[in-house]
Design a protein around this nucleic acid. Structure first.
Lengths: 175, 175, 175, 175
DNA sequence: TATGAATGAGAGTTCATTCAT
DNA sequence: GATGAATGAACTCTCATTCAT
């Protein structure tokens, strides 16, 4: 791939992230192109389908999450990760909706898998440290993660409400 | 209103509930009409705007929830209500998305208010009975309610996952 | 025809005149029915087609004009009639547009004929009295009449402009 | 703009002129597209709104009129211009109706202003030459212009009637 | 006869996608 | 590779007209 193509790809992804964050998946491809400073055709050359574009955004965002999770660790790594995630969710309409949709039309098994692995690691560490009950298993942690992101996104929570809500969940995770 | 009009109104609402459950709020009015066995014009006569239709569905569903909440009570009323709600959520794409959107374009303050009141009552009772911690307040209960519905809806949870996820939350609510 | 039917017919015509005056021929039949205090079906029972309704309005209005023309007379009858007509035009969107459309889809030969006859009489009298040139013939008078009504209607003339414009035409009619 | 786009734009305007001339502003955008040999989307790409299309037609036609007026001049320039205008009016349903409507939803101040200026020039020249009375002012000339176009359009005048009608008006303009 | 709910063709408009330039 | 004009199906909504009540 040529250098400018690479650059375009990145600009398109950035623009798409912004557009879909603002307008939801209903945001138009044309708008994405406009903000990326390219023509529609270019968007479709890189991502043959709108869903491909959405999937690519997802992938990139999940990769970031995985990286972030990887950097955390220790007794309260899981708690901090969840907190950070939920705090971000409100501004990322697309991620959350896409995270939710994963499995429907989009295929992102590997990336979601990576996230799952990263969270699994955090969970283990927390359980080792005695911060989280050993009865808790990965699936429900993932389920809570998705739920809370959705809630934060759509609910318009302020910081206080977010903390109080997470507090309930975190207490539920304790041994 | 005439008897047949009343019947059509109900059929339209039923059809709309199904359609929007399957396709989300993006489902077309034409499809609603088709499944209701009426012409588009009839749908628009009853609900001048698509949003009016969505609002009407919401209203009906929330009213049902409120009624259901009203029938419950006692120490574990809140827990049972949340469980039932989350179990239903999976099939009701529109409700959940609309519940989340309430306050944006749709105006359903009274009905949402009613639900809030009903949940408040259940919360009080649970706290009186010592089932739920007195530190928990209504806003976070509502936030958890919405979050879990979203999660259940989009996550494709099976019964087991649902129970395990709720278990964490319920444990978090305990005194 | 029953008495109440007769009454409804009149109320519908009155309502239609108002509605079409305000909204032009684009005004909806439903709106006419609403203002007449009857149901749409009733409107269509009396006037099987929207065009029939428009034609009926036309007919009534032209009849009034004919009557008005009949009451005038003398040397300046024509001038006074034209002035009055143009003054009325601004408020009667439908009349003018319909008067213009006559011959297209609507068939109002007799009523238009009556108006033509009435104007012819005024013209003769004016010519007898030497107020209007004998070279002027009926067709151009009718043409001017229609033109000026249209102009007054769409142009938003104030009284002064109307008078100045008519002055030019009247001067053109002099011997 | 690309060459083919330019060509399409022109074809759309031509088609629109024809369609609206035949059917009035009620003519459908789809019909315009069909006659222009393009898809509806193309029409809307060039003219985002139907009113934009109508305005564009207006603009083009008025510009032509202004140009035509600019080429005329001399003692009988005004008379020749009005004659030519009225002769054209019959085939241009949309222009006339839009000219009348200008100021309502459409914004064409500059173009209408240009026409006004051009007519003002013709009027001055005619008054200088003694062909038109100095008492006549621009507003009533514009009013007559619009009125006569409307009349010619809707009245179905033949050439003879047109000339006789104009003769009256022209006589009214003389000193 | 009156009512007003139902009909359904059609209008304006949007947008993912294609393809000539 | 990039451009952006063209496509056309789909969508919401309107309204003259019909017909069961």
């Amino acid at each position: 791939m040529r250098a400018d193509a690479q650059r375009n790809r990145a600009r398109i992804l950035d623009a798409a992230e912004t557009v879909f964050a603002e307008l939801g998946p209903g945001g138009s491809t044309e708008e994405v192109a406009r903000r990326a400073g390219v023509a529609v055709g270019t968007v479709f050359r890189h991502f043959p389908t709108k869903d491909d574009l959405l999937a690519a955004i997802m992938k990139r965002l999940l990769a970031r999450l995985v990286a972030e999770a990887g950097e955390l660790g220790g007794p309260d790594g899981l708690v901090r990760f969840l907190t950070s995630l939920v705090a971000q969710a409100a501004g990322k309409r697309s991620v959350v909706e896409l995270l939710a949709r994963s499995g429907i039309g989009l295929s992102l098994p590997d990336v979601v898998g990576n996230l799952r692995d990263a969270v699994a690691a955090l969970l283990s560490q927390a359980q080792e440290a005695g911060t989280v009950s050993r009865e808790v298993r990965l699936p429900e942690v993932m389920a809570l993660l998705v739920s809370l992101c959705q809630g934060a996104l759509h609910g318009g929570w302020d910081e206080q409400l977010r903390d109080r809500t997470l507090a309930v969940v975190f207490k539920g995770l304790e041994p």
